[in-house]
């Protein structure tokens, strides 16, 4: 079981994402932004950071990197993809997820341990959670405010595609407290908080994030 982790110029959290994959007993495969194929991986993680310096808009340049075309093609065929923080922004810019991430309503960069409620346990990234489970993982972003047209938000809510919702207060002004969403087929998930930083109580606030990576391994092995 191989999970690709993409590194763009300016990516920060690729190493932690690779470590999370290894904690879930899968092989982490480093993918470079200039790669034109996915090296036979079964899933892809687009990690956090500041790809291309967040120039223009967060994720706006990264979506045109060569590696993104095979990611988009594979995702449309059902390969699981997870976008974390800047990765979520990139997947929105690439059109794999609806909506957009905008400047936090407070204008402040938010860096804190954040409670989330898991609302969709059907995606390949969330099967190990119980519906309604509350998990604590780090949130660290300046442009994490989730926005979408009202019709899009209604669709996401109606179809159960809000995967994670902020609990215990909205940190960034996201509409409906949305922290993470999934694609129509449920295979692509994006969220602003960082599960890969919460896989071991020694190095994170909790180990609540590890179940995301274990969910993926179970889902792919079962398929």
């Amino acid at each position: 079981m191989k999970v690709g982790v993409i590194t763009f110029p300016g990516t920060l959290d690729d190493v932690d994402a690779q470590r999370a994959v290894r904690y879930a007993d899968a092989e982490a495969v480093a993918l470079w932004h200039g790669d034109t194929d996915l090296r036979g991986v079964d899933a892809v993680i687009v990690p956090g950071g500041f790809s291309y310096g967040d120039y223009l808009r967060c994720g706006a340049i990264a979506r045109f990197a060569p590696v993104m075309q095979p990611v988009v093609d594979a995702a449309r065929k059902g390969m699981p993809v997870l976008g974390i923080c800047n990765g979520f922004q990139i997947l929105c810019e690439a059109g794999l997820l609806p909506g957009a991430l905008t400047r936090n309503s407070s204008l402040h960069f938010v860096c804190r341990d954040q409670w989330l409620r898991v609302e969709n346990t059907e995606t390949p990234w969330t099967t190990r959670y119980e519906e309604g489970a509350e998990i604590m993982v780090p949130l660290k972003s300046g442009e994490g405010g989730y926005r979408a047209q009202k019709s899009t938000v209604d669709e996401l809510e109606g179809e159960g595609r809000v995967v994670f919702r902020y609990a215990g207060g909205n940190p960034n002004g996201s509409v409906n407290d949305i922290a993470g969403v999934c694609s129509a087929n449920g295979r692509v998930v994006g969220l602003m908080p960082h599960p890969e930083h919460a896989i071991d109580a020694l190095t994170g606030p909790t180990d609540h994030g590890l179940a995301m990576f274990k969910s993926l391994v179970e889902s792919v092995v079962a398929a």
Partner: peptide
């Protein structure tokens, strides 16, 4: 420009 219905916290500041 941000769409009229999109909150613009920078402009508000």
């Amino acid at each position: 420009m941000p769409k009229p219905e999109i909150l613009d916290p920078q402009g508000q500041a």
